[in-house]
Amino acid sequence: MSLLKIENLTAEVDGKPILKGIDLEINAGEVHVIMGPNGSGKSTLSNVLAGKSDYDVTGGTVTYDGKNLLDMAPEDRACEGLFLAFQYPVELPGVANTTFLKHALNARRKYVGEPELDALEFVKAVRKKARDLNMPDDMLKRPVNVGFSGGEKKRNEMLQMAVLEPKLAILDETDSGLDIDALKLVAEGVNALRNPDRAFLIITHFQRVLDYIVPDQVHVLSGGRIVKTGDKSLATELEKTGYADYTGEAAA
């Protein structure tokens, strides 16, 4: 069953077209990978899907879990199970990590009509998930992302994903800037959540993450269009040849 269906999506920032007709369909249970050169629109696509208002959708449709995604407020998208691990996570001074996670989880539970979690149970569950990601307990007490290293911020995004258990998780270059151990933890986090009802859209520059996560499809995004789709071998090929072949095609 199709969980996400993007048809001819176009979007611009400050009047400048960035996405120039994206078509992409992801079924529940699948893992898709998007690769592409810098500036090709990968983060723009993620942000448009998450509902960031800086981006103007100028055409096309996005159907998520049978609903018109583009009509929904960002918080409703999240409550419906859409999750974006940001390429550049924001710092929230004065907001403790656990407080933030609790608000996020309870917002979603409230939305789907479940009771709020007991505070103690919640803390226990979060601690366990943090340890799985090799995050020290004090990172939970600290304000969200404040003073975190690049890698810690990425792991914190993964912790949020683990706690919120989304239906569709978009990882925007979560693997960038991680050492091999951290990368394995991220991959384990993704694999642990994989099930027939969930899907992942993994945006990356590097083939190496695919040593740990086996994708169903790999797409090349260039110049605001998906210019090629293939299986895992496409990623290996890209790693060798680079994007030069595709940038020309997109511009044409």
Binding site: A73, P74, A78, A107
Partner: peptide
């Protein structure tokens, strides 16, 4: 900060609560 607001909303927290 709009980016902070969006970050919270992208985690399901309503705009008013954020």
């Amino acid at each position: 900060d709009e980016d902070q607001l969006f970050y919270l909303r992208a985690r399901g927290i309503s705009e008013a609560d954020a």
